[in-house]
Simulated scan of single mutants.
Amino acid sequence: MSLTRLNRSAATLSKNRTEDSITPLSGMCVTCVDGCIGMCEVGKSAYRGPEAIYPQPFGIITSASEKDYPLDLSHFNIMGTAVGAKGIEADSDKAIFPNVNIETRIGRDKKIKLRVPWIIPGLGSTNVAKNNWDGLAIGAAISGFPLTIGENVAAMDPDSKIVNGKVKHAPDLEWRIKLYKKWQQNGYGDIIVQANVEDTRLGVQEYAISELGVETVELKWGQGAKDIGGEVKIKNLERAQLLKKRGYIVLPNPLEKEAIDAFKQGSFKEFERHSRVGMVTEKDFMDRVKELRDYGAKHI
């Protein structure tokens, strides 16, 4: 039994010609016809190359897997008890579910207070994150749970000031932090700043701690969903060159004449900005934790 749909997906704007007759092992049409325009991912990648691996349209979507697992959360029930109550006083006049207390505390010293037991993980430099930050930050702050600012926010901001390889001013990062703090109530929740390899080299967390009052940081070594670095598409040559100069891997190299000429001629329309995957050892991790604690971080 195949658990995934191969070689066609709305995420990559591809489909099979024989939609009702698919080879399960490969996901290809049961009859691959000579002369087909190539609607599936195999055909599309033959003439569009690596473009076919990216969910489309880039910058305005989030995407998820179509894998059909044989087990999911709908197969589980949360069973109650016939005696007593949890999370509220065992009083029939009080024990209604809107009154249940689900507050919790997290962290080594349990000093981060949450009104509800969940957290929004890293939302970084993507357009989707930035365009929806107002609602996310205000909603999380009012509801009393932590929100994590993801990777690359400072360096992807063209208005950031970087001097001698270190961030000195990052208006987008500052706006995100201040908006959450403005709506934070009674000390519940927290704003967390994540850092990948590039952020660490640029001193983003040190800047956030010393200049923006951040107390909680997160160390990041890779993408949990795919074990590679983060990637974005860059449609502007000047911005691609700026990111290359700020230390990112940008493909093709926007500083090379051949790539510049090809882009201007329309041979390709987008550069790829890649984030590096961190390679961690226990000693490196402990050393970095000490650096951040010495700098003023309370939670890591």
Rank of each mutant, 00 (worst) to 15 (best):
D159I: 00
I228H: 12
A262S: 14
I88M: 05
A52Q: 13
L3G: 11
L147E: 06
L237G: 09
F58M: 12
K161H: 04
K44I: 06
K235Y: 02
I300Q: 08
F271K: 06
S210R: 08
R239D: 14
S45Q: 10
L242D: 04
L251V: 11
G35S: 03
A225F: 04
I209Q: 09
I234T: 10
T23I: 14
T216N: 08
D261H: 03
K15V: 06
A52E: 12
E231M: 14
D34Q: 10
I37L: 05
A240C: 08
T12H: 03
A208F: 09
G189W: 00
P98G: 00
A141I: 12
M28V: 12
M156N: 11
M156G: 02
P55G: 00
V83I: 08
E218C: 13
L173I: 09
D159M: 03
K245N: 12
K226D: 05
I260P: 07
D294S: 12
S143M: 10
G122S: 15
G144Y: 03
L243M: 13
S14P: 03
V232N: 11
R5K: 09
V277Q: 09
N186G: 02
D294A: 07
R288Q: 13
I96N: 03
G224N: 05
R239E: 15
C36L: 01
S14F: 00
I192R: 02
R201T: 04
K181N: 09
A129G: 09
T216D: 05
Y248G: 05
E238V: 07
V197R: 02
E151K: 14
K166E: 14
I162E: 06
E258C: 01
A262M: 13
F145T: 14
F263D: 11
Y47D: 02
S160E: 06
V100H: 08
G222H: 05
P146I: 03
T62K: 13
F76C: 08
G122W: 06
I22L: 06
G35W: 14
G122F: 07
F285Y: 14
T23N: 15
A10F: 03
P24L: 12
S160V: 03
K244A: 05
I209N: 08
A90E: 03
D93M: 07
F285E: 01
A195F: 02
A129S: 15
D172Y: 12
G189A: 10
L237R: 14
D227G: 07
V289Q: 13
K290M: 10
R246C: 11
D157F: 01
D199G: 06
Q185S: 02
I300K: 02
Q241M: 00
V83A: 02
E51F: 09
K290D: 10
V116S: 07
W183H: 15
G49D: 07
